[in-house]
Design a protein around this nucleic acid. Structure first.
Lengths: 207, 207
DNA sequence: GTCTATAACTCGATAGAC
DNA sequence: GTCTATCGAGTTATAGAC
């Protein structure tokens, strides 16, 4: 398999449905996803979807919650750890771009759905414990006070880093057309991002 | 087609429909948009939509083409102009963030739709003349050779700048939750981006 | 050009056999 | 548990009166 096993291990019908739904929902969103397609990809009948998950809404919620449940802890771990700032930035970029490369549809899914159905999504997020950026903020301020990096608002710094990591993947088709790259060139280009983003950020922070 | 493409001011029925469709399509995407809602917002009847634009598909295409038709020239003008690099970067960030602030739904619309229906979208893009990044690339290489900025691949530089401009707006709700900001705080934060992005990029380019 | 009414179709959901 | 068949709501699209 090599995808994700969030709840039930094994190839139970329920698991096959979950995997198929995960694929279809992340690629087409709530509105674009069709129960028929999910059933087809799971290799079972439409009626079974309703047997295991009562409704499309319920199935969607299960998938959305699982996705958030994987994305947030990864974020928290890096943001809240107590390692030195430069090391933290290197670690964050590396882990984050790794995750995104292996799950190219997830960021766009989260962003789109949060915009189109905010309440539905907020409900899936709030049971989760959010990353607390305070540790990171304090680190940045300490480095500035010590003169080891130039002054910058920590909120902007974190948004800059996240933007540089996520956007090129989300906007891939757009960027590809704009820069006139082939699919292969684009793939190689994105592989360079890990190095490029770390470099770009650390260069900007020089005092 | 055979319809006038010009969206003259003045509120002909055709124009009212176009405006309503623009609003609904950009906020809900092709799949989420309903002809009924477009008719309601235009203050007319559903049947009239089909009188002016033969189908939902056709209406969507008209809107999508108009959006691309506005976004690309703005890009081209900045990218292809022959002003010095630093000035160009300042100009690009300023213009671009200005446009995005006034049309917060457009970037996400383009990104989402290009991912969900690539062929449909490519068809809308290719009649347009794409910005040619070569002028920009040459400028960057010249500055590097002259030792006025540190070495960096021009492609990465342009992707970095675009990412820093667009992503915070597209990912606004996500960032807001993560940083624990109120709507008001977020609005103020985004207003600071014009200054912040220019600063961040130019700082990173120092030799 | 604009409307009402309705046909044609898509899709989520349920009933019931096995 | 799993399937086939079908219902019913919601949507796009058309017919036809004015």
């Amino acid at each position: 398999m090599g995808k994700k096993e969030s709840q039930q291990p094994g190839d139970s019908t329920e698991q096959k449905i979950f995997d198929a739904a995960h694929e279809v929902f992340t690629q087409k969103g709530m509105d674009g996803a069709k129960m028929q397609e999910i059933a087809d990809r799971a290799g079972i009948n439409k009626a079974l979807l309703h047997y295991y998950y009562r409704s499309k809404e319920k199935l969607y919620e299960t998938v959305a919650r699982a996705i958030i449940g994987k994305a947030l802890p990864a974020l928290r771990q890096v943001i809240e750890s107590e390692v030195p700032l430069e090391e933290k930035i290197r670690g964050f970029v590396e882990t984050y771009i790794d995750i995104i490369s292996r799950n190219t549809f997830i960021p766009l899914f989260i962003i789109s759905e949060i915009n189109k159905h905010p309440d539905r999504f907020i409900d899936s997020v709030f049971p989760q414990e959010l990353p607390k950026p305070e540790v990171f903020f304090r680190q940045v301020e300490a480095e500035i006070a010590a003169g080891r990096i130039r002054p910058i608002k920590p909120q902007h710094l974190i948004v800059n880093i996240v933007s540089l990591c996520i956007f090129p993947f989300v906007g891939k088709p757009m960027m590809r057309i704009l820069l006139g790259m082939s699919m292969g060139e684009m793939r190689m280009f994105l592989e360079e991002r890990k190095f490029e983003v770390t470099n770009f950020v650390l260069a900007s922070l020089r005092p």
